[in-house]
Design a protein around this nucleic acid. Structure first.
Lengths: 194, 194
DNA sequence: TTGGCGATGTATCATATCGATACATCAGGT
DNA sequence: ACCTGATGTATCGATATGATACATCGCCAA
């Protein structure tokens, strides 16, 4: 479950929601957006586009629509521009609303966070909290593994463990700040459905 | 270049230097040691072991040698214990002394750092500095990409970029501290070869 | 105007890698 | 006696990657 391709699919659909794009431009934006997480290769992107077309989530944009910006200077160079279909928009909404474990994993969380601007407040909060508890589990695993093996580790190994642990703890603190922000923005529904 | 398998190879050789081990135990220690970076699967480990045997870097340990601890309680369960050969030890030393770009990448650096205890001081310093400048390049790329696209990013995308950037900057600071430690431990050769 | 070169653009393939699983023995609890 | 979970070796199909092929374009210099 939660294959890497799913992440790519979500990212492509998300980017196409803004404006129709062709493969090359798509890859550039993909790596600008998620560069801190991971890069995608053409070997993944093009098959993914093909599959999305086959499933009817995106379609070739025969640019008759008219005005808006699609590419940079529209030279006559051969390019295949894709746009979201109605089904694609629907599916994207489903994916963005998904707040279960798939949205807590490293990459799955990253993409969804990048598109938080299109996600409703309740989902944002669920995802942030899920991600945080996911990382807290990881911290627990770390700590117990560390206490089990601490004495037979040399100082460099120990430092590596310590640094890894600290990174995750720092990420948890970051998430906590974001969660507080969200709560401030939309105060809790106090007692909505009792 | 710098495939993932190379990292696994180095890690296996490094672990076997301490004591002969069998696959299952090897994987456990691997994921305890590098858990913060990445997990290795059996689908990678066993082929790797096979290849290392074929290349003569490790060999089956027919446990006649006698006394020392190899596994936990030596029940009669079937297991294949591997040990380093002389060639393997030699190759491991070469790998640990490598201080070029391969030792600056995320995973390559992680493994080598984990085995810093077996690495000489000059190599440690070269690797740490190489890694740092590698990350500084990454920061530059980040910044310029950010300044090029800042205005058309929503607040969440921006926050993601900011957070990614900060993580790398933090890592650079960590490296700088380590470098200072190394320098203090072995003061610079001031004017050794002039 | 020729030609070189780097960016743009689409596309595929061999290879590397992962996750899941099969199969088997063993320790310990009920 | 049975069941469950840890130990242990091993492989396979599905996926992902990096490299590369191929072609057009804009631009600058000789």
């Amino acid at each position: 479950m939660a294959k890497r391709g799913d992440v790519l699919e979500l990212a492509v659909l998300g980017l196409l929601q803004d404006s129709p794009l062709h493969g090359y431009e798509l890859r550039k934006r993909l790596n600008a957006l998620l560069g801190s997480l991971r890069a995608f290769s053409y070997g993944s992107l093009y098959p993914c586009l093909k599959m999305l077309v086959r499933e009817g989530l995106i379609a070739q944009d025969t640019g008759e629509g008219g005005s808006a910006a699609s590419g940079p200077a529209p030279g006559k160079r051969s390019r295949i521009v894709y746009k979201l279909t109605a089904e694609g928009k629907e599916h994207l909404q489903d994916l963005l609303t998904e707040s279960g474990p798939a949205a807590w994993e490293d990459e799955g969380f990253g993409v969804r966070f990048a598109f938080f601007g299109r996600t409703d407040a309740a989902t944002r909060l669920r995802i942030l909290e899920g991600r945080r508890s996911r990382l807290e589990e990881r911290i627990d695993g770390f700590r117990s593994s560390l206490s089990r093996t601490r004495e037979r580790l040399d100082s460099y190994t120990l430092e590596l463990q310590r640094h890894g642990l600290e990174s995750v703890e720092r990420e948890v603190r970051w998430l906590s700040e974001l969660i507080d922000d969200e709560r401030r923005r939309e105060p809790p529904p106090s007692a909505r459905e009792t």
